[in-house]
């Protein structure tokens, strides 16, 4: 069948070259080949948001992105959020509010929150709930997550683009 495809991409600011099969998803390439296991496989069909990441600055479900489609594009994952100075304000607020239990959905929620705050730096509670409709959490009941995102918004001003 088909040969492996050569892909050049930028992941968390680092230029990366890789070989993939056409049938691999971006999520599979990240987790299985590049060992970036921050993005999680939940439903694997676009319902749960556990595999969320940023592709050219837009939030996407990486389980539904075909790997060869990322050639020449820019990817940001949860692994790129903390800096040498410390955690990203969203990560810090998720800790302070205990907005996670098992943690599987957390990277997806944090990426979704980052994408929302880039567009809407002063969200209402309704905005946060509406925006995170594509993220499922089976532990927390969402309340702590919503509060963590609302609390992080002021600290994120100008930093979440």
């Amino acid at each position: 069948m088909s040969k492996k495809l050569h892909v050049q991409t930028t992941i968390n600011g680092k230029e990366t070259e890789l070989l993939c099969e056409a049938r691999q998803s971006l999520l599979e390439v990240l987790r299985d080949d590049l060992r970036l296991t921050g993005a999680k496989e939940g439903c694997n069909n676009g319902n749960c948001g556990a595999c969320n990441l940023m592709l050219d600055g837009r939030l996407v479900n990486s389980c539904l992105v075909m790997a060869p489609e990322i050639d020449g594009r820019k990817i940001e994952t949860i692994e790129g959020m903390a800096s040498a100075q410390g955690l990203h304000p969203l990560q810090q607020k998720f800790l302070e509010h205990a907005a996670l239990q098992c943690g599987i959905c957390t990277p997806g929620f944090i990426l979704a929150a980052k994408a929302m705050l880039a567009k809407n730096p002063t969200p209402s509670e309704g905005d946060v709930r509406h925006w995170h409709a594509g993220n499922l959490c089976r532990c927390t009941g969402y309340d702590k997550i919503i509060r963590a995102v609302l609390d992080a918004a002021p600290a994120c001003a100008g930093k979440c683009s």
């Binding site: 837009r58 996407v60 479900n61 539904l64 979704a112 995170h132 409709a133 594509g134």
Partner: peptide, 9 residues
Amino acid sequence: IAGPQLRNM
């Protein structure tokens, strides 16, 4: 339609 991630794709 769907949620923000799917609308972005």
